[in-house]
């Protein structure tokens, strides 16, 4: 049923640290790899080697520039995938019951055998987290790697979403937000974790940690004072050459 559960026992989700993300897109690739080979229909590509290559991705990394009123602009890399909202508008609009939010752990999933590919859930999602697979005609979205996190065939350290497992910067964290002592809950509390587009009332489970303030924007390079000044006027042979060249037709440069 596309009614939302009134309460979920656990709230599994991600913390994404915008201070740490280096924008390498490794999470995008590992997500595409795992989810093409496992749960549900593969994530297709259209014209992968042609003009305008397109494809289905469950995770994409944007880069933004933030220009404060004073001081230099800052670049922020911004990975975005399904936020597994508590008040998920994508679930309630689904006419077939293919979209659902699990009562046991809060993961929002699509039953691809029931999906008619009407696209309304993607319209309802403010975050662009759902993409219609152009080859399969069904809606694809982040599963929080539901086929990894409970998978006892995998070594224990691999039982987390592929994006988290692969992140070389440690910018992604997976855990239970319903448990206030969990690492993700602690990170949100200590670092001021925030919601995206809170004005829409979707109550996202995933949280973003804002970039930390920089120590000082105005300092110059510490070794600059010790450097020899760069010669302004040539001397010796170069001085003669400079003058000689200036005398040639065409004028001084």
């Amino acid at each position: 049923m596309t009614d939302l559960p009134s309460k979920t026992a656990r709230k599994l989700g991600l913390v994404i640290d915008l201070d740490t993300c280096v924008g390498c897109h490794a999470c995008v690739i590992s997500c595409k790899g795992w989810n093409t080979e496992n749960y549900g229909a593969p994530l297709s590509d259209q014209r992968p080697y042609g003009d305008e290559p397109m494809g289905t991705f469950l995770n994409r990394v944007h880069s933004y520039e933030v220009q404060p009123e004073h001081g230099p602009a800052q670049t922020v890399h911004f990975p975005k995938s399904c936020l597994h909202c508590e008040n998920a508008p994508c679930v309630t609009v689904c006419p077939t019951g293919a979209s659902y939010k699990r009562a046991e752990d809060g993961i929002v999933l699509v039953n691809e055998d029931h999906c008619i590919g009407c696209g309304l859930c993607a319209w309802a999602c403010p975050y662009g987290a759902r993409e219609m697979d152009q080859a399969e005609g069904v809606m694809k979205k982040c599963t929080l790697c539901v086929d990894r996190i409970y998978n006892e065939n995998l070594p224990e350290e691999d039982r987390e979403p592929a994006c988290v497992r692969t992140c070389p910067a440690g910018a992604r964290h997976f855990g239970d937000f319903a448990d206030p002592t969990s690492m993700v809950s602690q990170l949100v509390e200590n670092r001021g974790g925030m919601d995206l587009m809170p004005e829409l009332g979707t109550a996202p489970v995933n949280k973003y940690l804002p970039p930390r303030p920089k120590d000082d924007w105005d300092d110059t390079a510490p070794l600059a004072a010790f450097l020899q000044p760069v010669a302004q006027e040539p001397s010796g042979f170069l001085n003669w050459l400079d003058k000689a060249l200036d005398k040639l037709p065409g004028g001084a440069s």
Partner: peptide
Amino acid sequence: RALSQWRSS
């Protein structure tokens, strides 16, 4: 299948 979720959709 689209006829099934009248409670929310």
